[in-house]
Design a protein around this nucleic acid. Structure first.
Lengths: 198, 198
DNA sequence: GGTAAATTGAACATGCGTGTACGACTTACC
DNA sequence: GGTAAGTCGTACACGCATGTTCAATTTACC
């Protein structure tokens, strides 16, 4: 309502403070994706600020993770929102995978950290949004007869997360080239989703 | 060579000591599967022994996890070994899934804990055995033309772990009934492995 | 039944991560 | 250019898990 209600810009914080807050969140994301147990000192160091400064902006480790979680979720949601899910569900699935598998994976790593310090209810609520979008696509594909109906829809939703995660792991292990990831993920999901022959 | 070289029975340990060692390993497995960060006190309590006793048999947390890891791996390997992998690779895959998905999942949970305290080389070496068996089946299926060859074989191997893990998670979340698991896993893998239509 | 092995709990040392208090310093902003 | 807001490092308190020591007690085994 005032002037700059960015949903990010805290009331009347000074410019350097806002910059530091962003740097801390960025650093936290990098650190926690690499190691879910990364400590506050490490995050502060990577953000280029003192540990005390970090605590000046985030009351506790839990608070930091919670806010980072919210920010990342928001971004992921926005990225998924940008994907056109109309038309042939199979093509829509391909588009969804191509444009968001990295985000989904990044989110999943952060989830690891979140599960260690956030209440389960918070986690569950966070899934809600993105899940619904994928679930909708799958339901439509089933209704139109291009996706199989002999497996639970919830299972097919879970499969997306899983396959993306596996691909990311394979890349990390050096067994899969990053440019191939989207193709492999898509081919696997399309095959798994197709109605059984006969 | 002596008399009872069970590969389990340490030299001349007293009967109660051997019993306790087994109880500790069992307790560790249960605790670590539920929570990869379970502490020694908790494991000792569940095993029904004092913490000091535990340290009497295992020099450190790392040592305990390492030995548990070895034992579990050995069991998993033995269970997989019992499966008949000859004949139609598709049927062999079904048998493999049906008779060992629980074990694979249990192993995977333990892996979580192991990754926190064991050197990566140890983990890698552990995978070797079971992996080879699955990889062999997949290679044969590809050679016989019943499995697809347009995706990396390593990816198809990874998919087994992944899909089993996902199913276990779905069960834990209450979205999948345990008796349905084998069917769902099998249907998913068969679809993902089948050569693309054309 | 005697002996050595094994178990026990309590107490202690240590290391690590979190979160706080303080005083001095620097920076943004009017 | 003044002032409040922000930052910094050090130091400290606290909780928690690991691993060790010790003396007393129980247990297996010949």
């Amino acid at each position: 309502m005032d002037r700059t209600t960015d949903a990010v810009g805290p009331r009347g914080k000074r410019a350097d403070a806002q910059r530091n807050i962003a740097a801390i969140l960025d650093a936290a994301l990098e650190c926690l994706v690499r190691n879910p147990d990364a400590n506050i000192a490490e995050i502060a160091r990577r953000a280029g600020v003192g540990r005390v400064t970090l605590y000046g902006h985030f009351s506790s480790r839990e608070d930091l993770i919670d806010q980072l979680f919210a920010r990342t979720l928001d971004r992921a949601d926005r990225a998924l929102e940008a994907v056109d899910l109309t038309g042939d569900p199979r093509a829509a699935l391909s588009r969804l995978v191509a444009s968001s598998w990295q985000i989904v994976d990044q989110f999943r790593h952060l989830l690891d950290a979140a599960q260690r310090s956030l209440p389960p209810a918070r986690i569950r609520a966070a899934h809600e949004g993105p899940m619904r979008r994928i679930a909708g696509l799958i339901e439509r594909g089933r209704a139109e007869g291009v996706f199989r109906t002999d497996l639970p829809a919830t299972w097919m939703v879970a499969l997306v997360h899983t396959v993306v995660h596996a691909a990311a792991d394979e890349i990390a292990e050096g067994r899969l080239a990053e440019p191939d990831a989207a193709r492999v993920i898509d081919a696997t999901l399309q095959a798994a989703y197709a109605p059984p022959a006969g």
